[in-house]
Structure formats: structure tokens, C-alpha cells
């Protein structure tokens, strides 16, 4: 049960939220949006990897060919 992926995603989320706030307050709106998108892409990569692992497990276990 590798728990650290939850904390990794949480850390990225907090980091992106803080970065968004900082960039927004200094007036650079578009950069803030870029940071938010970047964080989202990184998190999405990890989550998609896990989802494909889940689907692979379910496929082999329930003979879903």
C-alpha cells in the first residue's frame, strides 16, 4: 500500500495553489494559469498510470478480454 502517492499529489496540489496565489497577487495572471496547468498535468500523469494499473488488474482477474 504505497501511501506516498497520496502525499505526493497533496504536496503538488498545495504547491500549485500557493504558486497560483503568489503569481496572481504579483499581477501575472497568465503565468499563474500556466503553473496551475503544469501541476494538473503532472498529477494527471500519475493518476492515469494508477488507473491503467487498476484496469489491467481488473481485466486479468475477471477475464475481461
Amino acid at each position: 500500500m504505497d501511501v506516498n502517492i497520496i502525499f505526493k499529489i497533496g504536496a503538488i496540489g498545495i504547491l500549485v495553489a500557493a504558486l497560483y496565489m503568489v503569481l496572481k497577487s504579483t499581477g501575472r495572471e497568465e503565468l499563474a494559469l500556466m503553473a496551475a496547468l503544469g501541476g494538473l498535468v503532472v498529477v494527471l500523469m500519475m493518476v492515469i498510470q494508477m488507473i491503467s494499473e487498476l484496469f489491467e488488474n481488473v481485466r486479468t482477474m475477471f477475464h475481461l478480454y
Binding site: 500500500m1 504505497d2 501511501v3 502517492i5 497520496i6 502525499f7 499529489i9 497533496g10 503538488i12 496540489g13 498545495i14 500549485v16 495553489a17 497560483y20 496565489m21 496551475a36 501541476g39 494538473l40 498529477v43 494527471l44 500519475m46 493518476v47 494508477m50 488507473i51 494499473e53 487498476l54 488488474n57
Partner: peptide, 27 residues
Amino acid sequence: LAVLIRQHRPEIALQISVVTGLLIFLT
């Protein structure tokens, strides 16, 4: 963690809930 992040970045909060569900199911 998800509730904390939901105010600022709702999409990442959703990812956290999905990953938690995945982890529990994988175990």
C-alpha cells in the same frame, strides 16, 4: 487533504479522491 485543496484547486482534490479509491482497491 482533499478538503484542504478543494477550495483552491478542485481538480487536484478530485485526483486525490480517485487515487485513494484506487489504492484501497489495489490492496
